[in-house]
Design a protein around this nucleic acid. Sequence first.
RNA 1: GGGCGCAUAGCUCAGUUGGUUCAGAGCACUUGGUUUACACCCAAGGGGUCGGGGGUUCGAAUCCCUCUGCGCCCACCA
Length: 878
Amino acid sequence: MQMPSKYDANQVENKWYDYWMKHNYFHSEPDEREPYTIVIPPPNVTGVLHMGHMLNNTIQDVLIRRARLLGKNACWVPGTDHASIATEAKVVAKLKEQGINKSDLTREEFLKHAWDWTHEYGGVILQQLKKLGCSCDWDRTKFTLDDDMSEAVIKVFVDLYEKGLIYRGFRMVNWDPEAKTTLSDEEVIYEERQGNLYYLQYKIDGSPDTLTIATTRPETIFGDTAICINPNDDRFSHLRGKKAIVPICNRVVPIIEDEYVDMEFGTGCLKVTPAHDENDKNLGDKHSLEVIDIFNEDASLNSYGLHYEGKDRFVVRKEIVKELEENGFLIKTESHLNKVGTSERTKAVIEPRLSDQWFLKMEELAKPATQAVLGENPEINLYPKKFENTYRHWMENIRDWNISRQLIWGQQIPAYYYGDGKDHFVVAETIEQALEKAKKATNNQALTTKDLRQDTDALDTWFSSWLWPISVFDGIRNPENKDINYYYPTNDLVTGPDILFFWVARMIIAGYEYKGEKPFNNVYLTGLVRDKQRRKMSKQLGNSPDALKLIEEYSADGVRVGLLLSSAAGNDLLFDESLCQQGKGFGTKIWNAFRLVDGWEVSKAIDQPESSKMAIAWYESKFQKALLEIEDHFSKYRLSDALMTIYKLIFDDFCGWFLEMIKPGYQQPIDAKTLKSVIAIFEDNLKIIHPFMPFLTEDIWHYMKERTPEEALIISKWPVAKPINETLITEFEFVSEVISGIRSIRKEKNIPFKDVIGFSVLNKENSNTNFDSIIKKLGNLDGINYVSEAIEGALTFRVKSSEYFIPMAGSIDVDSEIKKLTEELQYTEGFLKSVQNKLSNERFVNNAPDQVVASEKKKEADALAKIDTIKASLDSLK
RNA sequence: GGGCGCAUAGCUCAGUUGGUUCAGAGCACUUGGUUUACACCCAAGGGGUCGGGGGUUCGAAUCCCUCUGCGCCCACCA
């Protein structure tokens, strides 16, 4: 088939993706081969592909494709998650646009809207992954709200409840007044905000004394139920046992003492508002204080706020400051920088709020997961290792997990209330089972499902995704099925360090609890993708390139290479489009290399030239050496280094040296033997590039010869390791220096490459002549003469102790040659001196290993020989 | 405030137990080169007191101390 001179990526990429899909190469079924499994970190079902996804999924695809070439049964399970908060927020916003309030809808009606939304926008991201070339087993695509996935979640909830690990608690939680839901600590972002510190005066009951308290939140005085002083603070000893009067609401509250109070901060007096501050709650519990919640769920004040009832907390803050001031309660205002918790999703300021929540006890569950990563014989490796510290920090300070969310979009908590109180409930997988339990608990056989009310909260999304590596193989509902037994534990997990605890740690926990085994062997933590100015890529900044446009412009292969060129595990990737350009350029280079080979006429009549024979032997060793390096990089998850090794092998060794060595003269045919080897070498090259550039390599593969679907590159075999001829490699390093020397002289003296030149060698060592045919070809020499004496009137250069001569027509510039030689002599003598200094140091000779001393001696000998050569040349010039 | 980590060429980064992988790579830069696969190219070249200071050692980018400047995580005193 005729190759086009230009590679048309867009058309080619679609063609081969369809081809791969058609022949079902991505699909995996358990068989006798060794499995290699990755479960995708499920992106938000309604999300779109961004740079982080591109990096992440490129890495996964490289690993999967390589495993496939290594003959493993590669299975990459794709899917999406329902992202409860984010999706619900979007649906609420959309309904609002249509003039619909969430609160006016029934649960079922809202869910209908949410599902409509999901079906409309859902899965776009998976289509985008196909553009990137991801070879996921699409037949296994999962969604965290699929019926079977939800069933697994509910089953696990019930199980944990029955084990006594899930409990209902009245706790201070992060309340998002906008989304009207609870957030986990991890979903709260602290921002520095300029606020004020208000100094308020409280009267003392039955005394003319007053005390002053500094607060950042004057509107919370309606919830004050005590004043606290430090027992060691002499300034306030006269207030012990007295009571204070809260301004405006005139509540009389006790003055308590606790060492928790920092005597240095503010005035040394603290107002205690147990309903609205975690520390105050602790104080309140300790001193049995009343808890007064002054807010509605949207953070407007309730009836405790008196005449402020119904107004928003921030409006009230402004107004109450004014009222306090007018009534002489405000002593002064200082500006104060404090950190305010905000919602990751809605950006609303978080309100600490006491509410009924469901919690999962973590301490015992976490133990095997901690051991698995940090124990003496770790079963799970983190790449890079530095994240083990972060992991340790999390696991050692683990807190109970608040798993309930005041949302509809998600799995509804399977707790069913009966009777009146909120304390009467049963937990069961279905309402029928719940009814049986309720009948038993109440001894009332007359109960019907109508008497049961299911908890309205949904579960945290992470409570579904922590089961992901198990539930995608149906390992919760059906624990001994063929898939789970074959694919679990999975091999590698590729994700960002920002969800190391959210997701990775919890999957490990769930793995040990539900499979008694780790969920994966290795965790590859990618960095964040940032722009050139190191800013995080975000929609707001508009610095995030459109993923699909990038693919269109630079090809999927180009973008994949661009992303991996400089992204060491765990390091942030400073993304620059020029990297994709480089990736695309690499593709063009390979394309053109094959065009060259493809264009050669074969002649059976000619013998293989000596130079080609040497070149093939040399490149085969070079390739094998690179192959070992690549294996080593992969084993350490150093994908950028693996790619760079391939890049240099192809660009420099293959295109730059090898093809030049074997290339026949212009319009000359190539011998059949050489061409056969070149094709075999090219095939091996394509195999190792394929994981990084799947489309281009598959395309060239099929231009090489007619191939059946069984012979597609994607399912071919990774090159086998062969012995390396190190001598050949070392010899060629020397030869390449000689060729560089010739090129340098040509450049210095403006001798065009097409001019054939003479060449002589004064060879002091008996170095071999294996590569002479190649030196002759690449240097465009008329031959190589071995001489026993320096040639006069020639340009010279030296490699090691050999000296090379290029005769120059006309006279050479003796002065400049002398100058060049003198400088070289000075440098070499200086070098010799430093080596000899070292060797004359007795302590060095006695203490350094023999190998090191020997190498210094070799350096000395080489330098001495070279000095002799240079001196001889100088003499002949003078 | 507590913890972890980083600092090597203009940029992004390798550099494993201290010594031939020791000062490197890619990109960028400079100079020269196009009828002969490829200017998305080829060749040649410049560029670093390894953040500063001190120490250990025959020998330090590498180990220790200290200072400086960054980054991340945790807790956040009203």
